[in-house]
């Protein structure tokens, strides 16, 4: 059974039909890169998986949990689905460690000591063992994004959604964030990335999903899709971004 299964999902913003029957199955442990032009619906699709956006037709399952427009069910879902944002969205009034600790403490009701240890472990894992007490404003973009990844991991999600998480970073800081993702892949984490990092998608990703006009236009194993794009739309997209 796939970990994430997206079934004929349609999404409208008023008159605007942004997702036109998207089908996608993601197995546990897979790393999926969603690529496509802006406006193709890739971020919207990602945000539908954890209920940040609602959809009008079709179904999405994570494990055996259906994604529904219901506060309580979405809160439960958030324990299996983590998300990292382009703009980090760290809590600026809390230190790196406090950012990581907040959800396990409040949502999972773990005690403070346990959460502190967890925060330390996770921040060490993303290479920020020396920044526990730093505030986001005193961290570089790459460091902030790594704190955000640690914050998501603190809820031990089954799948991590990454929404253009390197797009707001200076070029020299992209590598440190991608390195963390590679590490996660090795540990068997399921990753769904909306990304502009074509090299990363090709080298680290298992599968590529090319979205165009609200549909999954072309999909396949990463190396094949990049080496041998089938549709003219993907060919032209790749020729522009490369």
């Amino acid at each position: 059974m796939p970990l994430v299964s997206i079934d004929k999902v349609h999404k409208y913003y008023g008159e605007n039909h942004v997702l036109k029957g998207v089908d996608l199955k993601v197995e546990a442990g897979e790393v999926i890169s969603i690529i496509g032009r802006s406006g193709s619906g890739k971020s919207t699709l990602l945000r539908c998986i954890n209920g940040l956006e609602s959809f009008q037709e079709g179904a999405i399952y994570v494990g055996n949990q259906a994604v529904e427009d219901d506060e309580l069910k979405l809160r439960l879902l958030s324990r299996s689905v983590g998300m990292v944002f382009q703009s980090f969205n760290l809590f600026p009034h809390k230190t790196a460690a406090e950012n990581v600790m907040l959800a396990p403490q409040l949502v999972l009701k773990k005690d403070a000591e346990e959460c502190k240890a967890l925060a330390k472990k996770l921040l060490e894992k993303v290479g920020l063992g020396d920044k526990l007490d730093a505030y986001p404003a005193n961290l570089s973009g790459g460091q902030q994004q790594r704190v955000a990844i640690a914050r998501s991991l603190a809820m031990s999600p089954k799948v991590l959604l990454c929404d253009e998480i390197t797009s707001a970073l200076d070029p020299e800081l992209v590598g440190e964030v991608l390195h963390v993702l590679e590490q996660l892949k090795e540990e068997g984490m399921t990753l769904i990335l909306v990304t502009h990092e074509m090299n990363f998608a090709r080298d680290v990703g298992d599968r590529v999903v090319f979205m165009h006009q609200g549909k999954v236009w072309e999909t396949g194993a990463s190396d094949e899709v990049f080496a041998n794009p089938q549709t003219p739309e993907l060919q032209s997209f790749l020729s522009v971004v490369r």
Partner: peptide, 20 residues
């Protein structure tokens, strides 16, 4: 994004208001 981060972490409305 502050609200969205809280939502994806599973915080309730009251927790989001109070802590973030």
């Amino acid at each position: 994004g502050q609200w969205e981060a809280c939502r994806t972490l599973g915080l309730t409305y009251a927790q989001t208001m109070r802590h973030v």
